[in-house]
């Protein structure tokens, strides 16, 4: 009788361990897939793409060129991530562009076209860059 009761208790313990392990595994799986979805669709990927596009655009500027960056689409993206701060910063001293669409740190990318502060005009809706 005693042995039977002990066996039942041991079985219950094993069952409890299995159930808790399965719950942890399910939570971890959900976490991993959420992370992967965020990686694929999140602000970071959009920031990486936008910062590279603008850097290539600036790098391809021959002397006497003017480019106009329309900020409307980037602003919509930033709004979808509840971000209302500065989206695009061009730092002519460090030759770097920074784009931030979400609440993270943003993405920085270098460019090699020589620009001065007076070559960049931030008109809020548009950014004008002359070379």
């Amino acid at each position: 009788m005693m042995k039977k009761r002990m066996n039942k208790k041991a079985e219950e313990n094993v069952l409890q361990r299995h159930i808790s392990a399965i719950i942890i595994l399910i939570l971890f799986t959900i976490g991993t897939f959420t992370f992967m979805t965020l990686q694929a669709n999140g602000a970071v990927i959009k920031e990486k793409i936008a910062v590279r596009q603008i850097a290539l655009l600036i790098n391809s500027m021959q002397p006497g060129t003017k480019i106009v960056i329309d900020m409307a689409k980037l602003k919509d993206e930033a709004m979808s991530y509840d971000y209302a701060g500065k989206i695009l910063e061009i730092n002519p001293e460090k030759n770097q562009i920074k784009i931030q669409l979400g609440k993270g740190k943003g993405q920085i990318y270098p460019y090699y076209t020589r620009l001065g502060a007076d070559n960049i005009q931030d008109l809020n809706k548009e950014i004008h860059i002359t070379s």
Binding site: R17, A21, I22, L25, F28, T29, T32, M36, Q39, A40
Partner: peptide, 24 residues
């Protein structure tokens, strides 16, 4: 035993997550 199996699964998922980051 559920614990070692769970550890193996977690390691596999972690490898998938790291590779996804590198891929993107």
């Amino acid at each position: 035993d559920a614990i070692p199996v769970m550890i193996i699964f977690i390691v596999i998922l972690a490898v998938i997550a790291v590779n996804t980051t590198i891929f993107y």
